[in-house]
Amino acid sequence: MKINFYFINALAFIFSSVLLHAQNENYTEITEIDNIKSKLITHAASTSSIESTFIQEKHLWMLDEVLISKGEFLFKKENSVRWQYNSPIQYTIVIHNGLFTIVNNNKVSEFNIDSNPMFREINNMIVTAIRGDFINNKDFKAKFFENSENYLAKLTPTNAQVSLMLETIDIYFNKQNMQVAKIVFSEPGDDFTLITFQNKKINAELLDDRFLVKDISID
């Protein structure tokens, strides 16, 4: 149970990590994916760091309710990641120097990535995704769409257990700069989570200190 929980949360977080914009209209499917694949890889290769804020909207259709969370996202090559919620709650996930750390309610949980097969797998997925190589990821079937402004990568989980929780993951890339603008996690039953990235700084200098847990402000 614990493994599945972390796995699913990690998926949300991995695809949020992939990089950064778009509109959801008049998309047509792309059958020739080599071009977009090479664009993704080229963009990934030229990205050494990302600093961004994000807004997460959880749409609960039956409740007519949208729960909004806000936070910060940091990425630095090769695979240092920080995903931090600042409101309405404080919750942080950090991957750095072989450690997977969760800070929640002043409680710090650390997992050694190398000694734990699950976290090793999560780490591999993050590295793959950040390299723009999620097209070949065996855990998802990928289909690509485009309109005048964006590319849309629609990922469907191949794992039956994951598909019970996630129907699709839609990643929207801006055509001009290949940055991820937003990600939509759709669940069975019309609920979905939308993450939009704002205030993006690409390849700005990011010190390793930003990935240390002691530097994470805890209220």
């Binding site: 929980f5 699913i8 949360n9 949300a12 997460q56 609960l60 039956m62 969370s69």
Partner: peptide, 16 residues
Amino acid sequence: KDSAMRVVSMSELGMK
């Protein structure tokens, strides 16, 4: 909602 109380729990990342 609609003559009922609804309780929905989810993870920080939005997974119900």
